[in-house]
């Protein structure tokens, strides 16, 4: 009986959370596209989200391409299909692994930063101070960050895909004498717009969800420094989970349009 009551309470809390995030998202659409725009802050946040994530995303993508190629090679060699390696790795990277791994890295790096930053501003009354001065903290803090993550994540994914392909080339080149030109000829012969467009589109939604969840958790932070820690943590956990759920939906939709 007690257990059932506890489960009921958890389900109720979860539904309230979903409802709250939905309202928060609606508010973003209500306020995000009305003048005045905070251009300066949007650019600053694009720099914070995009430029400052380049090194982490780059290193991770390089290792991802390298490892994926090294791990896949023995199986393909066994079937005498070693020459398919560039094609197989590039499709895996561009369609799925690149966007998802980049989104997960960004959920950790950017989601936690936004959650902690806004959470800290909430508990130190900085958001209240903006509110009482008659300015709109939601527009300044939330819309700018969500727009920045939405715009920057597709660019980060393109960057990560490129670096990952270089990593893959390096692995292929070390094991067998495949030239740069031959490798990328095979890659571009295999890849089509039907691989690229869904990948870029879903990256946009990954960016949006990372921004919205990070901002929601931080903006509604409570209970002092403990609350800030919880906000940052929840931002990462919920955003990562949402990335996988969105990916599942994106794959189904892509399958409808392009017959994967």
């Amino acid at each position: 009986m007690i257990q059932t009551k506890g489960q009921f309470q958890s389900a109720k809390r979860f539904l309230f959370l979903v409802g709250d995030i939905g309202q928060f998202t609606l508010r973003f659409f209500r306020e995000g596209f009305h003048k005045p725009f905070e251009w300066k802050e949007i650019l600053k946040q694009c720099g914070e989200v995009g430029y400052r994530s380049l090194s982490l995303v780059g290193v991770t993508a390089f290792i991802m391409g390298l490892v994926l190629t090294i791990q896949s090679r023995p199986t393909l060699v066994e079937f005498g299909a070693e020459s398919w390696l560039p094609a197989m790795v590039s499709v895996s990277l561009i369609r799925e692994i690149g966007p998802v791994i980049t989104a997960l890295i960004c959920a950790g790096k950017i989601g936690s930063r936004i959650g902690a930053e806004l959470g800290s501003m909430r508990v130190t009354e900085q958001i209240d101070a903006m509110e009482v001065s008659g300015t709109n903290p939601f527009k300044y803090l939330v819309t700018t960050r969500v727009l920045a993550t939405s715009l920057m994540l597709p660019l980060l994914v393109i960057f990560a895909d490129t670096i990952a392909l270089y990593g893959s080339f390096l692995a292929v080149n070390i094991k067998g004498a495949v030239s740069f030109q031959l490798f990328f000829n095979q890659v571009f012969e295999t890849l089509e717009f039907s691989d690229l467009i869904p990948s870029i589109l879903k990256s946009f939604f990954f960016g949006f969800i990372i921004g919205i969840i990070g901002c929601y958790m931080g903006y509604n932070s409570k209970k002092g420094t403990e609350g800030v820690g919880k906000s940052a943590n929840s931002a990462v956990v919920v955003a990562s989970l949402m990335v996988f759920i969105l990916d599942l939906i994106a794959v189904q939709i892509t399958d409808l349009f392009y017959e994967l």
């Binding site: 130190t124 900085q126 101070a129 009482v132």
Partner: peptide, 16 residues
């Protein structure tokens, strides 16, 4: 209305 009211927070609440 808030533009006619100043509010001094105990914690100062300066944008850090």
């Amino acid at each position: 209305l808030r533009t006619d009211i100043g509010f001094l927070f105990q914690s100062n609440a300066l944008y850090d």
